[in-house]
């Protein structure tokens, strides 16, 4: 089999890799080759949302995306989300209400909500926030603080 080069943009920087196997998931490329370990591996089958990143601004499960299928795309991970306007607001909202316990699921939640703000605007009906959160599992917060963070994000946007 021939080599499979791969070009991406990750957190605003161009990335060129000489040979990424076709079967390699974006999750493994980010963590294993680019050392971006903030993106977490949870279930590896699309059920927990821990591996959520943005691909061209849209929340995407990196465990169910082949790296080669993201060729030429703009990837944003938790390491880069702080320099994004919406991403920073989500991080601040999580911090303000203490929506983090062990933190393993947190990058996925932050990326999912950042994606929703980019796609739908913060004035989207609150049901859309809950629907977005429905794709992410948390085993320690009980979700209350995470939902409060989402509600605060929406209230903040509505008051702008």
């Amino acid at each position: 089999m021939s080599a499979h080069p791969l070009r991406l943009r990750v957190n605003g920087r161009p990335v060129e890799l000489a040979d990424v196997p076709v079967t390699e998931r974006l999750l493994d490329t980010l963590r294993g080759r680019l050392d971006l370990k903030g993106t977490k591996e949870g279930c590896r089958t699309g059920g927990c949302g821990a591996c959520t990143v943005l691909v061209d601004g849209r929340s995407t499960l990196s465990c169910l995306t082949l790296a080669q299928e993201a060729a030429e795309a703009e990837i944003t991970t938790i390491e880069g989300v702080g320099s994004d306007a919406e991403g920073h607001r989500v991080q601040a909202a999580f911090e303000a209400v203490g929506a983090v316990q062990c933190g393993y699921c947190t990058p996925g939640f932050v990326m999912a909500l950042t994606g929703l703000l980019k796609e739908r605007g913060a004035a989207a009906p609150f049901g859309e926030f809950l629907e977005e959160l429905g794709g992410n599992l948390c085993r320690c917060t009980g979700y209350g603080a995470i939902v409060r963070a989402a509600a605060a994000l929406r209230a903040e946007a509505a008051s702008r």
Partner: peptide, 12 residues
């Protein structure tokens, strides 16, 4: 459509 997976899954 809304019954399929999560929003992030439906982006793909």
């Amino acid at each position: 459509v809304r019954a399929v997976g999560s929003v992030a899954l439906r982006h793909r």
